[in-house]
Computed example of a mutant assay.
Amino acid sequence: MTPTILVAGGASGIGFAIAQGILAHGWRVVVADVVEASIARAREELADAKDRVHFVRFDVADEAAAVGAIEAIERDFGALDGVVNSAGIGRDVPALETSAELFRKILDINLVGSFVVAREAGKRMAARGRGAIVNISSVSGLRGNAGRVAYGSSKAGVVMMTQIMAVELASKGVRVNAIAPGPIETPLVKEMHSAGSRAEWIERVPQRRYAAPGELVGAALFLLDPAQSSFVTGQTLAVDGGFVAGGMLGQ
């Protein structure tokens, strides 16, 4: 049976690139997003996929909506074999200028939202004894990047959530891993990165560039596909041009 993968935040940026990659791999995909205009664009771009793609709108920060959406997906489109948690927001604000309201909002979407989707899909996959969850973290969840007190904390939480869920679900046939992207050319990054910060990122990334969203697709497919990664769980794979590994980068 052809695997079916849910991509939360799948109508733009990294999520959309992964959704395209899933379809190119011959699988079925559910593109979920909260922005109606993004869903409309994705629907138009993926029109050729026809019955292999399904679209749904829900807010990952709304627990009831997320639970209901996953129930409806499994009822109307089929059982999920995998999930990619790519929905997220970010702000580049110094810690002393970050309000508690903003901190909570970013945690609610990036961490709590990812947890709810992973939990609900995980329940169903565990009952069937198979499945894979891939959470999108960030190098800002692995390193202390200035201006990312809320965003980095949320993404660090995603890493630990991934490890704990991997341990708990391993005996049930469900693998849980994460990807930590470095600087990627997405709408979110364009919003967060000023010209100055872009120059600094390029200086500190050993490959000296930003990546295209499509450069994360291989990592996602590897972690989703049991034929490639059946003994891989609880891991965070940095796709970052060498940023996390970087030390002294030369003169």
Rank of each mutant, 00 (worst) to 15 (best):
R148T: 10
R175C: 12
R57L: 11
R119M: 09
N177P: 01
I18S: 10
R143T: 04
D51P: 03
L237K: 05
H193T: 06
G196T: 12
K190C: 13
T236C: 10
E74Y: 05
P94G: 04
Q228A: 14
A100T: 14
R41F: 00
A166V: 06
Q163N: 05
L96K: 15
F115S: 02
V7A: 10
N110H: 00
A65R: 15
S171W: 14
A37Q: 08
E71C: 03
N145H: 05
A211E: 12
R204C: 10
M125H: 02
V29D: 09
R175H: 09
M125C: 08
S86N: 13
I22N: 03
A49H: 08
V149K: 05
M160W: 14
V67H: 11
D51L: 05
D59Q: 04
G246H: 07
Q235L: 07
E45M: 11
E191N: 09
T186H: 06
M192L: 15
L169I: 12
A79P: 01
G68A: 13
H193P: 00
N135G: 04
T4I: 15
V158R: 03
R41E: 14
S114Q: 01
E71P: 00
A219H: 04
V29L: 04
R204L: 15
V116L: 06
D59N: 06
A87V: 01
R43Y: 03
S12R: 08
M161P: 06
D108F: 05
L224T: 09
K155V: 01
S138G: 09
T186G: 07
S138P: 04
D240K: 02
D33P: 00
L96A: 15
S99I: 13
E191M: 08
A126S: 12
H193Q: 09
S154H: 03
V176H: 09
V205P: 04
F243Y: 14
G157D: 14
A64I: 01
G214Y: 02
A11E: 02
Q207N: 13
L223H: 04
G90F: 03
L111E: 03
G9E: 07
V84A: 06
F77I: 06
A227W: 03
L23R: 09
S171C: 11
A19S: 10
A126V: 11
I109M: 12
G82C: 03
K172Y: 08
N85V: 10
K155P: 00
V139W: 05
D76C: 07
L224F: 13
A199N: 06
A61H: 08
A37D: 08
V93P: 03
G173M: 08
P206F: 04
A199G: 12
A17E: 11
S140W: 11
V112R: 07
F103V: 07
G214A: 02
V34I: 10
A79W: 00
A11S: 08
A66F: 14
E45A: 15
